[in-house]
Simulated assay, not measured.
Amino acid sequence: MTYRFSALLPAAALALAGSVQGASAEEAVLRAISAFQASTVFYDPFQLFVDRVNANGEGLVKIEVIGGPDAMPPFEIGNALRSGIVDLANTTAVYHANLVPEGLAMTLTNRPMSELRENGGYALLDQIHKDKAKLHWLGRLSENIQYHIYLSDYPENLDFGGLKVRSAPTYQAFFNGLGITPVQTAPGEVFTALERNTIDGYAWPSIGLFDLGWQEKTAARIEPGFFQVETGVYFSDKSWQALSEEQQDFLTEQMLELEAENGRFTELAKTDFARQEEEGIRAYELPAEEAAEFTAMSLEQGWKPVLAASPENGAKLRDLFVK
C-alpha cells in the first residue's frame, strides 16, 4: 500500500459512512475511484456514466469521483472495493484478477454484453465476483476494442521469436507461445525504453495510443488484434446492498443504456487507425494461415489461467462467453 493510498483511507471511510446514511435517506451519495486518468479514452465512458447518473438521478443517487490512479494504485482498487473503502470504481477485472481470476473471461469473450446478459454469462460472473471478493459487477464500459502488438520498426518478414515486447500478465503466456520475450515495463517508462531500444515494441489497445505519445516511436501495428479490452463499473457489494431497490434499478438502467451504445467503439478504432496511418504507423497483416493460428493460440493460452484457477466455473464461462 502506497502513502497516497493510505492517505486516502480516512476520507474514503468517512465518505462511505456518508453514502450508507444517504442510502437510507432520500439521496445516496456514492464515492468513486478510477483506475484510468481523467480525460483519457478509457476514462471518458465512465465520465459519461457519472454525468448521466447525476443528471437523471437528482435526489436519488449522486456519484462523486474522488480520484484516479494518482490517488489509488489500480491494482489496489479490488481490495478497496472489497473492504468498502470506496463504493464503486471505473476499473477492469484484469486489475483484480488476483481476487477473481475468472474475471479474465471478459477479456477473452467474443460475445456482446447484450448476449451475455441474455445467456446467463453476466449473471454467473457477477455471482462469482460476489462470492469471491464481495464485489458487484454493474456492467461493461468498453467493447469491440482489441489489443495489438505495436513495433518501433516496420518488419519486412515478421518473426516473433526473439522480439522483446512490453507485456502484461494477462497475455504473457500467449507471448511466450509466440516466442516473444515479454518485458514488464510501467506505462510511464515505455517511451524511454523504445527510445533506448531496450524493447522492440509493446502491446496496447487499438485506441488510446495518442494519450501517451508513443506514436512518435512506433512504425507498425500487427494485424490481427487479440483479446478484448474490458473496462467496467464495479461496486462494493456492501455499498450496493445498502442502496434501495429503486436506487439499484436506476443505476442498472443507466448502465444498460450506456452498454447499448458500445458500438461506438468500433468507430473510435477506425478513427484511431486512420490517425495512426497519418502518423506513419502502418498495419502489418499476417498471412491468412498465420493469422488464424495467431488467433487460435491467443484464445487457447488466454483461457488456461481461468481454467486452472477455476476448472468448473471456467468451463461454464468459456461455453457462455465464446461463440
Rank of each mutant, 00 (worst) to 15 (best):
G232M: 12
F191E: 14
Q254M: 13
A203D: 00
V306H: 06
A296M: 09
T218S: 11
M297S: 12
S244C: 02
E285A: 09
S239P: 08
G280E: 06
P287G: 08
E259K: 09
R196G: 05
P205R: 02
N262H: 14
R221H: 04
A242T: 09
G208V: 00
G232Q: 11
R221F: 03
Q247A: 04
S298V: 13
G232R: 12
V233D: 09
I222C: 04
R275F: 06
E289V: 04
Y202P: 11
P287N: 10
Q215M: 07
F265D: 05
A308Q: 13
I199G: 00
A291I: 07
E278I: 01
L243G: 00
L256F: 08
V190P: 00
P205N: 06
T252Q: 14
A203R: 03
I199P: 01
P224R: 12
L268P: 00
E279T: 01
Q301F: 08
E195F: 08
F210M: 02
E277R: 14
V306N: 04
R282T: 14
A220G: 05
Q241W: 01
Q228Y: 05
S206V: 03
E261Q: 15
K238D: 07
E253M: 09
D249Y: 06
S206W: 02
E259Y: 09
A308W: 03
Q301G: 03
P205Q: 04
I207A: 03
L299Q: 15
